[in-house]
């Protein structure tokens, strides 16, 4: 891939779309021309991070309102891959959620930690009613 690939996806804020968007992440991993790492592992990790981030946007960001949308952009070059997940609600506190690892017997609270472990740079920006979770993976 010599040029940057940009994908722009908008789906209803419903968990039935998780598999479809995750699959797009897997397909993208196999389409990267110059990636030298473990492609199957990258595919799984992109599927997982997209799934976790979308679930957060649906359940916390959009407060489980199925009438809202989740907007996803994926931008890939030879050097990096940037995923942005936008939600339209009150948002959530990534800072408060990622300071501690989930206790082994906690049922929830692992999603953000998984993203932080698998991606190289993660930030959640809340600005004038639009929230975006931005995840960057370096591909060198």
């Amino acid at each position: 891939m010599s040029k940057r690939v940009e994908l722009n996806i908008k789906v209803p804020s419903q968990t039935r779309y998780l598999a479809m968007v995750g699959q797009i992440g897997e397909s993208l991993a196999f389409s990267l021309n110059n990636y030298r790492g473990n492609r199957r592992e990258l595919a799984y990790h992109l599927n997982l991070c997209l799934t976790e981030a979308m679930t957060n946007a649906i359940c916390h960001g959009n407060d489980s309102d199925p009438e809202k949308d989740v907007h996803i952009t994926i931008s890939a070059s030879d050097d990096d891959l940037i995923i942005r997940i936008y939600d339209q609600g009150p948002g959530f506190e990534i800072g408060a959620r990622h300071k501690v690892n989930a206790h082994p017997c906690d049922e929830g609270g692992r999603g953000v930690n998984i993203i932080l472990k698998l991606m190289d740079n993660v930030r959640y920006v809340r600005n004038k009613g639009v929230n975006v979770l931005e995840m960057t993976k370096f591909l060198d």
Binding site: G22, Y44, N47, L48, T51, E52, T55, C105, D106, E107, G108, R110, G111, I114
Partner: peptide, 16 residues
């Protein structure tokens, strides 16, 4: 083939 934190959470619930 694929499990996320929600799937793990369901198994933890069953375990507890």
């Amino acid at each position: 083939r694929f499990i996320d934190s929600s799937g793990l959470g369901a198994l933890v619930s069953g375990f507890k």
